[in-house]
Structures are given as structure tokens and as C-alpha cells.
């Protein structure tokens, strides 16, 4: 289950963060997303070590923790997408697909002429679309 998705700006400022847990514990997910920026930074700053080619937007698994997984995605404008999931067996292809759709949704959201670049994304349409993407991610991984 995806518990949290987030968009983080190029100055590491949160642009959009949405948790999908029922409990009132969004703060811990904020923490997870925030700390995962360490890994993103590290990957971006040491492309050689991580074996990551800079052409690749998908950063892969950021956190190999026992209980949840954090995936990252870096757009070419240095906007990061973070995905936190409690599914421990996730296929990479699913995540890539998720991020691709998420990226498309993000691009649509920031293309809104009333959106101020670098400001939080408040679009309800975007939120709905993200929620749909998240839901369908759950389905595809179950199926």
C-alpha cells in the first residue's frame, strides 16, 4: 500500500505531500520524505558511486529498510517525487509506471497558469488525480 507521495521542489522544499494512512500520523511521513532527500542528494552528488546515470529520472529504491520502502524520482528540473510504500515486494516496473503517470499529473498541474512555480500545489484536480494513480497502483500490484 502506498502510504505517502510527495513532490519536493528543487530547493528541497515540499510542494505537495499527501499521505494515505487512516491514522493521524502524517508527520512521520513528512519525516520519512524529508530524510529521504538525504539519499536523493547523495545519489545526485555521487552519480558514479550509485551507478546512476543522470539521464535516468527514476532513482530507484532509496531506503532499504525493513518495514517500508521509499522510492525516488528526479525530474530534469530537479523536482523530486517521493513514494513511500509499505509493500515490501514491489516490482520496479510498477514503480516506474507510477512515477511516469505521477510526473504527467505534475506537469499538468504546474502548467496551470494560475500556479506559481515554486509554490505549493493546491490544485484539487491534481490531488484527485494523484489519489487515482495511487489507488490504481495498489490494484496493479495486487493483480
Amino acid at each position: 500500500m502506498i502510504v505517502c507521495v510527495a513532490v519536493v521542489g528543487h530547493q528541497n522544499n515540499p510542494l505537495y505531500i499527501q499521505s494515505f494512512t487512516e491514522a493521524d500520523d502524517a508527520l512521520k511521513l513528512h519525516h520519512i520524505v524529508h530524510c529521504s532527500l538525504d539519499v536523493v542528494d547523495e545519489r545526485v552528488n555521487n552519480p558514479k558511486k550509485s551507478g546512476l546515470t543522470l539521464n535516468e529520472t527514476f532513482l530507484g529504491l532509496l531506503y532499504p529498510t525493513e518495514n517500508y520502502k521509499v522510492y525516488g524520482y528526479l525530474t530534469n528540473t530537479k523536482v523530486k517525487f517521493i513514494l513511500v510504500t509499505t509493500d515490501l515486494d514491489v516490482r520496479d516496473a510498477d514503480v516506474r509506471n507510477f512515477f511516469r503517470r505521477f510526473h504527467a499529473a505534475y506537469v499538468d498541474a504546474v502548467s496551470n497558469p494560475f500556479h506559481v512555480p515554486g509554490k505549493k500545489i493546491t490544485s484539487r484536480t491534481f490531488a484527485e488525480r494523484v489519489s487515482n494513480i495511487v489507488k490504481s497502483f495498489g490494484l496493479s500490484s495486487a493483480g
Binding site: D25, L27, K28, L29, H30, H31, I32, C35, E66, N67, Y68, T86
Partner: peptide, 12 residues
């Protein structure tokens, strides 16, 4: 705190 919560509440 968020950090402890993140670590413990997701640990079965």
C-alpha cells in the same frame, strides 16, 4: 517524535 514514530509505528 516523527522520527521515532516513523521508525517504530511501521515496525510490526
Amino acid at each position: 517524535s516523527p522520527v521515532n514514530s516513523a521508525l517504530l509505528s511501521m515496525l510490526p
